[in-house]
């Protein structure tokens, strides 16, 4: 039987495929029946936060920063409660990262402020002496891509039934609703509203002026995203 296989490339290939597909079949496929259930208090991203998440991805922040707190005392002391599977229910793609050249950012919204990020992105070593993080100065001039963020929101709402415009249970027993605009213009308007809440805590007058004029720079979007990481 084996000798027969060795001379027949087609059946041989089938054999190889079974051997390598086997692990995936048993390990991965069954889990997709149990789609990730969000834990109480986990909400989908708003338009501006999602645009900020795109800025995070565009600059491969995940190359140096993880978003996964492991259940060790040293990690919970440093970064907060260890990560739960349900907290990632709306993360497409996941951003756990594989290297901590900089600290974990899973709950950075709990202990860093808008003001801190504003200074830090401009000159990391000026805020944290000895930091080896590069300056991200272009985020202060490039505009955030609200259109694409909105397109992604519509996509995940329609395809994956992400609960926009629906009540979501919060930890204190109340409910909260993440609004998704019906039109692209509406999405821009709500993103701008959110952006103004961020710039209220910022010092850079040029950024404030840009947002007043209806343009949202990348820095505002990424700060909105960072503040949402809790």
């Amino acid at each position: 039987m084996f000798h027969w296989l060795e001379k027949r490339p087609f059946f041989f290939a089938v054999g190889v495929f079974i051997a390598i597909a086997f692990a995936g079949l048993v390990e991965i496929v069954p889990n997709f029946y149990k789609a990730s259930q969000p834990v109480v208090g986990t909400t989908p991203y708003s338009t501006l936060e999602l645009a900020g998440r795109h800025v995070y991805i565009k600059n491969s922040c995940n190359a140096c920063h993880s978003q996964l707190i492991r259940p060790f005392k040293a990690e919970t002391d440093r970064y907060g409660h260890y990560s739960l599977s349900g907290e990632y229910a709306y993360d497409r793609p996941f951003l756990w990262g594989s290297k901590r050249t900089g600290p974990d950012l899973m709950r950075v919204g709990n202990y860093r402020t808008t003001d801190w990020h504003e200074n830090h992105m401009k000159d990391p070593a000026g805020v944290v002496p000895g930091s080896i993080m590069p300056k991200y100065t272009w985020m202060y001039t490039n505009l955030a891509d609200i259109d694409t963020a909105y397109a992604e929101q519509i996509t995940i709402k329609n395809v994956f039934a992400v609960p926009y415009n629906k009540p979501i249970p919060m930890k204190d027993g109340s409910t909260s609703v993440v609004k998704l605009a019906d039109t692209l213009d509406g999405a821009h308007a709500s993103a701008l509203e959110e952006a103004k809440l961020v710039t209220a805590d910022m010092k850079d007058q040029a950024i404030k002026d840009m947002v007043e004029a209806g343009n949202i720079p990348e820095i505002v979007a990424i700060i909105a995203y960072m503040n949402s990481l809790k």
């Binding site: 086997f22 079949l25 048993v26 069954p30 029946y33 149990k34």
Partner: peptide, 12 residues
């Protein structure tokens, strides 16, 4: 599904 997974794993 978990039981199925376990059997599948063991026998395969």
């Amino acid at each position: 599904i978990a039981t199925f997974q376990a059997y599948g794993y063991f026998f395969l």
